[in-house]
Design a protein around this nucleic acid. Sequence first.
DNA 1: ATAATTTGGTTTATTAAATAAACTAGTTTA
DNA 2: TAAACTAGTTTATTTAATAAACCAAATTAT
Lengths: 97, 97
Amino acid sequence: MPLKDLNPILHSQLRLKIVSHLMAAEESDFNEVKEITGATSGNISVQIKKLQKVGYVKVEKGFKNNYQHTSLSMTEEGIHAFETYVENLKNYLNLDD
Amino acid sequence: MPLKDLNPILHSQLRLKIVSHLMAAEESDFNEVKEITGATSGNISVQIKKLQKVGYVKVEKGFKNNYQHTSLSMTEEGIHAFETYVENLKNYLNLDD
DNA sequence: ATAATTTGGTTTATTAAATAAACTAGTTTA
DNA sequence: TAAACTAGTTTATTTAATAAACCAAATTAT
């Protein structure tokens, strides 16, 4: 079968780092994402918003030790999209099961 | 260990399709790539040139049945880059060996 | 013979995406 | 109370992806 197009929301260096981390971590926050990605806050803010807009990531804003705090987690839809992305990508990498 | 950056030359929808095909096919040409990717000639031309410029793909222009013909194949450097890309990507997909 | 069409592309212009710089708002420390 | 830090957002810039328009040679139709 022909190679399927890769979900462009996930096929992005930074968003893939973020989602990969959230898939492994189950729950995380803005700062953790900043540390593991090494990206700038602005870039992360933009990409998180994009992931939220399509419903892949849940963004909860609140407070923690008087400071604003943004916690992040994958939605069911996001988990499913990631799994589909991985299956499609395997065909590119010749890692087919 | 932290997630390594993915080689941006390979982490592109169309270029990954092209390279994936060339890795499997060993030898191919412009038209075959056009068929399997479904992309426009212009887009393929640009991406092939990019892959050639970094030394990942060998481009040989000649003639076949009186028509111009462009054959394509991976270079050693390209094969190595692809393999490294796959290894790095595995860490994103949680497919680690 | 020559005009129209097809093959096999390249070049250039447009659109979209990634990224960082500059900014905002509140908190803590000197 | 001013400086510095935390935790982000908004906006501007750079870069990349894509398609439209173009070019040249070969073929077919008139």
